[in-house]
Design a protein around this nucleic acid. Structure first.
Length: 287
DNA sequence: CCGTTAACCTGAGAGC
DNA sequence: TGCTCTCAGGTTAACG
């Protein structure tokens, strides 16, 4: 569930559920995520009240009482699940996953509330959670990220600043969280298609008209993805219930060999590798 | 400082 | 059926 729209969807549904509730018990089944979970993690969380749930870039930020925070990142394969107390698998999923094939051996963290529990599951363990002790720590954490495409401050002036003189290709700039935060591989590909920019084009070669397209389409693509409940790429068999539907809207992502969706073009979408990530684009439309 | 690459992990699917 | 190989929504240490 990892890019900005998916985490936003989780934020919205999680907020509804846990806001102003109290954590009664914390169970950690596997401390070896991307970063090792600290020894006193359980004690630090227990009996804390949830004040609110926010998001920054691809991170979920759970605001706790007494200026404490719980940061969650989902890596490539992380998901959150809401289970009712009787552990009924029906109608319990938080966002993207529902069904009987609950991969419980990767349930690394369980947060128990009065009538339900929240489970953090991540097969590949590229994700992590971190407890922050103060507002100061949160501010320091937030400094790692560039402006998000949906923020007002994401404008031509900012794009000029981060693109000018960059010898780095635009695809990698879009993915670099310290310049622009929240975009991942799917949405980078989609945004570049709409903007008619070749993913290999260098930052310094992007002109004003292309910057304007990047502004407009990064906002449009992300907003629409949120509206559609995010993208669900690899679902489990027999899954039932809520999942995102933006995958049905993909123009180029995973569409290599298909015709370009631009009816005036109708050439084939090509797949190339840029910095070990798959890139999909139309060689005719994206220059 | 800058840009690129390999590595961290598990599981699904393809091909044989 | 089972083996091997490739690929996957991300990040970052290490390198030149």
């Amino acid at each position: 569930m990892p890019e900005l729209p998916e985490v936003e969807i989780v934020k919205l549904s999680l907020k509804k559920t846990i806001k102003s509730k109290k954590i009664l018990k914390v169970k950690v089944n596997n401390r070896n995520l991307r970063f090792k979970i600290q020894k006193d993690f359980e004690a630090l969380l227990k009996r804390r009240k949830i004040i609110d749930v926010n998001r920054k870039a691809k991170y979920l930020i759970i605001i706790l009482d007494d200026n404490k925070y719980l940061i969650m990142h989902f890596g490539m394969s992380g998901t959150l699940h809401l289970l009712k107390k009787e552990f009924d698998f029906k109608n319990t999923n938080l966002s993207f996953y529902k069904g009987q094939n609950f991969p419980s051996k990767h349930n690394h963290i369980e947060l128990f509330f009065d009538k339900f529990k929240i489970v953090y599951n991540d097969p590949r363990r590229f994700g992590f959670v971190k407890f922050l002790n103060s507002k100061k720590e949160l501010v320091k954490f937030l400094k790692n990220f560039g402006i998000e495409p949906l923020e007002k401050k994401f404008n031509i002036k900012y794009l000029k600043k981060i693109l000018n003189n960059k010898n780095k290709n635009i695809k990698n700039i879009l993915l670099d969280q310290k310049y622009i935060s929240g975009i991942g591989n799917i949405y980078a590909n989609e945004i570049l298609f709409f903007s008619k920019i070749n993913p290999n084009k260098l930052g310094k070669k992007i002109n004003i008209s292309e910057m304007k397209k990047l502004l407009v389409f990064s906002k449009k693509v992300l907003r629409k993805a949120i509206k559609k409940g995010g993208s669900t790429i690899r679902d489990f068999k027999n899954a039932e219930g809520t999942k995102g539907s933006f995958q049905d809207e993909f123009k180029v992502y995973n569409k290599d060999g298909f015709r370009c969706p631009n009816s005036l073009c109708a050439k084939f979408i090509k797949k190339i590798t840029i910095s070990n990530r798959s890139s999909f684009y139309c060689p005719d439309c994206q220059k």
